[in-house]
Simulated assay, not measured.
Amino acid sequence: MVKAIRIHQTGGPEVLRYEDVDLPAPGPGEAQIRQHAVGVNFIDVYYRTGLYPTPTPFTPGNEGAGEVLAVGPGVEGFKPGDRVAYAGTLGAYAQARNIDAKFLAHLPAEISYETGAAMMLKGLTAEYLLFRSYKVQSGDAILVHAAAGGVGLILCQWAKKLGAFVIGTVGSADKAKLAREAGADATILYRDEDFSARVREITGGQLCHAVYDGVGKDTFPGSLDCLRPFGTFVSFGNASGPVPPFNLGLLSPKALFVTRPSLFAFIADAARLREMAARLFEAVASGAVKIPVHATRPLAEAAEVHRALEGRATTGATVMIP
């Protein structure tokens, strides 16, 4: 028996219930992990509200770090005592869990469990955004929405190391400071300024090679106005609601590219996941990318954590300790 957060019906933060659940032995291909830290991400809200439908009851959360307690039949490459981190299937909001071992990566000793739990989903997302959705080159101008958020701060750091000119939109002066400290060359207060007009001004009318947008409805279609001809709009989140259906003709005048990638499509292949994780671990271990864990809360307080997340009252990453 372990403690876990369970959702019996979708809805607001109040549906997150802290309760006892049975934990069976790991099945074929599975590893059982005692979790030292659990990551918190906006995708957790999508599952809780039903935007991403899943049968109830379920335990939310797609990211964590801890040590292997046991492995099921057929598992190779992992053994009890191994330090691991993952981004994968639902079930992270728990003291311990079983997970398909294909989602696991060996966590280097120099990276803490808290950092490991905070970095996998956001860091692997940044990896596929910068290296696979639109491959950022030195000299590129890019726009990062929600630049002081968990993914945003990683994007600012990593893109700057790649030689990009980074513009970030933020909601306050304090968040602008965080984004600049992370590497943003310019910041835009989206509540006070027309961000597309400011992008045109900042770039001298040249506009951006790519826009990375985890906000969704509120930043579309303004994001398209920020792109130069043949630019790429990468929509990877819906913090303000999903992008509404639109006429593809909007893309035609500048021959724009639009993509809606998913981390889970990229990490479905275990070899590709390990390749992505290796690049992320190298960037973090070298200090090129720092993972800002700005809040640590008990797992039992998951409802309060979700309220802060939805209220855009968080910066960087929040982790919960089971």
Rank of each mutant, 00 (worst) to 15 (best):
A117S: 06
A117I: 10
L121Q: 08
K122R: 07
L124R: 05
L124P: 03
T125E: 06
E127R: 06
E127C: 08
L129N: 07
L130D: 00
R132G: 02
Y134S: 02
K135C: 14
Q137V: 01
S138I: 00
G139I: 13
G139N: 14
A141E: 00
H145D: 13
H145E: 04
A146C: 04
A146W: 02
I154T: 11
L155R: 10
L155E: 02
W158G: 01
W158F: 08
A159Q: 07
K161E: 00
T169N: 01
G171M: 08
S172T: 06
A173C: 01
K177A: 12
K177N: 08
A179G: 08
E181T: 09
A182E: 02
D185T: 02
I188F: 05
I188Q: 03
I188A: 07
Y190P: 01
D192W: 11
D194T: 07
S196N: 09
A197L: 14
R198T: 05
R200M: 06
R200A: 15
E201M: 07
T203A: 02
G205W: 09
G205F: 10
L207Y: 11
A210R: 01
V211P: 00
V211C: 00
Y212V: 01
Y212C: 05
V215Y: 05
D218H: 11
D218K: 13
F220K: 15
F220Q: 04
S223K: 14
D225T: 13
D225K: 15
L227V: 09
R228K: 15
P229Y: 09
S235T: 08
N238Q: 15
S240A: 11
P244Y: 05
F246S: 03
F246G: 03
F246L: 08
N247R: 13
N247E: 07
L248R: 00
G249E: 11
G249C: 12
G249R: 14
G249M: 15
L250R: 12
S252R: 15
S252Q: 15
